[in-house]
Amino acid sequence: MTKRIDFKPGKNHPGSWHNDRMPQRLKNIPLLKPFYPVVALVLGSFRDLLPIIVVIGFFQLAVLKQPLPDLYGLLTGVALVTLGLTLFVQGLEMGLFPIGESMARGFARKGNLFWLLAFGFALGFGTTIAEPALIAVAGEAAKVAATGGMITDTPVERSSYAWGLRLTVGLSVGAAIALGVLRIIRGWPIQHLILAGYLGVILMTFFAPPEIIGIAYDSGGVTTSTITVPLVTALGVGLASSIRGRNPVTDGFGLIAFASLTPMIFVMAYGMIRTL
């Protein structure tokens, strides 16, 4: 295949480090100087968690008027969450972002559209099919379908329904990422595709069995996991910054939007087909 992607050589976006998470006041304490990165990251993570702690504490103590149970477990739990978030953010800049961008540049340099679309599809399909949140939602959907009389209420029928649903969502997310990649390369404006997607959702809503609609609408939100999102975002931004004429901000984002829109359409279609 000939070169079909106009590769633009240049530098990667440098990852911003811990500086933006460090309060200015603490930068002035000399004793803390060697520990800047660690202190900054931990503080940043704790700041991110503070709202949840405040909300849960307020409702427990002031609204429900109950004591905090197991204070020790609570404090160690918060410490673990803070530590976990700190490591995750650090790993993001070291691992997920660089590999996403370097592969995007690799594909752009290679210039082979087929392999790039295949990569997008595989990434979308592979990450979604094993997603724990999706497995839970598919199980719920099978329960609803059995209660609503759409399928016979046997374990075999239920698990076949749930598996079919997972496969459907996996294929739709794969197709969505591939389409999103094609959009970045061609430079199509995102709103036209989103408008088409919204029309698809509305159209399907009128024909799908009413029991499936709630689950279909929710399925859009649960497909994109915490590890998929940074990777897919880096892929989009990396592609947009390696192709001539594309802007990383206006063209690079949007892959996640497709990945959360198409499952809604496909789950409703699945509900229709299974009830025929």
Partner: peptide
């Protein structure tokens, strides 16, 4: 980096489920 992400997510989930 990948190691950090995996261990970080596991600790994060563990803490959320515990507290």
């Amino acid at each position: 980096g990948f190691g950090f992400v995996i261990i970080g997510m596991a600790l994060f989930l563990q803490g959320l489920e515990q507290a």
